[in-house]
């Protein structure tokens, strides 16, 4: 079972809540995905204080644990302020920390991220940092007090899957005991299955489901892929080989034709 900051979860599929055709479709997609955690952007949805109340009451009604995020924040100060607001609105110490460093790729700013993580962890937040596959940054985040990491697969919304397999598998091998959730760039269910097969603990999906032609159908497909990937990981995949190895030995059989 997946455990994030002491919370046990059955589902290894976390969902973002942005860019769905409507809140009703979002609600059905969350149900189809059997997701237990949804992330919600405070900054863009609110316009300040409690003005997004209509949307937030829909989010609260999803029957899922809310992981507020700081999407769209470019500085430590913005991210920390947004985290404070999120704690008020959703009454949770969980925060998915995003500090964006570059607008075209929405790539994390590792320096700002580490600093914001340090400040928020010291205040008692349980921080889920959106980071790259960089080992040194990961180390800094863990020493800042993070106990979960959310490395990207590829840039947010790009749908390119796991872009740097070597880096990601190195990260997994380097921190075997830290929950690692692939946070961005997953495009299709096979990407998600691959992430779980490689030993990642969970995936967070937004665009790939929200912008699919049928978000509810895609949510169900992702749920199956995540389950398959996890089951495969537990079942011990074979190692790839360079040469064929017949599954039925042929030497010694009576007839070959």
């Amino acid at each position: 079972m997946l455990e994030l900051y002491g919370t046990k979860l059955e589902s290894r599929l976390l969902l973002g809540t942005a860019r769905y055709p409507s809140p009703a479709v979002l609600t059905e997609a969350v149900r189809a995905a059997r997701a237990e955690v949804v992330t919600v952007a405070l900054r863009r949805e609110s316009g300040g204080e409690r003005r997004g109340e209509g949307f937030w009451s829909i989010i609260r009604g999803l029957n899922a644990r809310v992981l507020p995020n700081t999407a769209g924040c470019h500085s430590v100060k913005e991210a920390v302020t947004t985290a404070h607001m999120a704690r008020e609105v959703f009454a949770t110490t969980w925060i998915k920390l995003e500090v964006i460093g570059e607008d075209d790729t929405l790539q994390p700013d590792p320096f700002g991220l580490a600093e914001a993580a340090r400040l928020l962890c010291a205040e008692g937040f349980e921080v889920f940092p959106y980071t790259t596959e960089d080992l040194v940054v990961a180390e800094r985040l863990l020493s800042a007090g993070c106990r979960v990491l959310m490395p990207w697969g590829s840039p947010i919304g790009s749908g390119r899957g796991l872009n740097n397999l070597f880096g990601l598998t190195a990260l997994r091998a380097h921190f075997p005991a830290v929950p690692l959730i692939i946070d961005a760039g997953i495009g299709v269910p096979s990407h998600a299955a691959r992430a779980l097969e490689l030993g990642f603990d969970a995936v967070l999906i937004n665009t790939a489901i929200a912008q699919a032609r049928d978000p509810v159908g895609m949510a169900a497909a992702f749920a199956q892929a995540v389950e398959a990937g996890r089951a495969a990981r537990l079942a011990g995949p074979i190692e790839p080989r360079d040469l064929a190895e017949p599954s039925t030995p042929v030497i010694g059989t009576a007839f070959r034709g």
């Binding site: 949805e45 609110s46 316009g47 003005r51 997004g52 109340e53 209509g54 949307f55």
Partner: peptide
């Protein structure tokens, strides 16, 4: 398109 009820 912003999820907000107030005409700010």
């Amino acid at each position: 398109m912003i999820e907000s009820d107030e005409d700010t």
